[in-house]
Amino acid sequence: MKGWTHASQGARMSVRRRFSWDQFSAVATLIPSLILLGVFVYGFIVWTGYVSLTNWNSFIPTFSFAGLQNYINVFGTFRFQSDLRNIVVFTALFIIGCLIVGMGLALLIDQRVRAEGLFRSIFIFPMAISFVVTGVIWSWILNPGTGVNLVLKAFGWKTLPSWFLSTTIVPNITLGQIQVGIPLALLAVLIAAVWQMSGFAMAVYLAGLRGISDDIKEAARIDGAGALRMFWSIILPQLRSTTTTIVIILSAASLKVFGLIYAMTGPGQEFVTDMPSLNMFQTTFQGDQFAQGAAIAIVLLLLLAVFIIPYLISTLRQDSSS
């Protein structure tokens, strides 16, 4: 009895010692990245927020307090109002497009096709290409004078689409200085963006599909569920958390989209394909209006936060409940 107590005490002590050593080494390994993150991410966010409230709009650094004047100026421009319309339209359609195409591809591949690995690779390959390359290639394909329009012409199409050069906005409701609706030019950019990123949605969905237990599907089948019924009532609900993950990651990619637009269309005529990131870059580094550029950056950050914060809250809640 005595021996047992002793041994257990010894074990407990060694556990405690090891635990504190673990803790120490964990903290020690985290410190460098915490410092780097603290300085280069959060520190600079705070700095950008500060700059956005100053009068620093030339090479002469003037840090006098400007209040919200930079934000008022930025929101008052035709360009930024167009940016907000474009980013909302682009993000919504980009996510919906990737989800539908990705799900479709995942379902097809999940049918235990032959050479599954080959198809998986083909669909996911575009992701390995940089957005700039995608932009250049698709700007050639969708150039109204060359590219795909020549094929359409050969098939006898009379009115050829002008793709990313179109300045039409549907449905075209005037609000403030701009027309609100879906700029048709953005659809051309969306084709390229969805082409590139739907492979990612496919891969995540495929993993999700493989994770659904066969028991549930078997049970549904025994209850007499058809393929469609099975999809709506069993597979889709089971993939809800997968969908959330895809939406969060794609929305982050969408909100900071830069290379694709820069290479493919630029801001576009009447800013039909402009994005806040592009505006921010040109305002800051070509116009030297640092405070206004910072204001755009902060608005962009807040837009991102709208997507990220609910996700963080939900994952934290899941962690604590499990």
Binding site: N57, F78, R79, F271, G287, Q289
Partner: peptide
């Protein structure tokens, strides 16, 4: 800054 605004107006 003028050039940037000029380009924006031109667009």
């Amino acid at each position: 800054g003028f050039t940037n605004s000029f380009n924006n107006a031109m667009e």
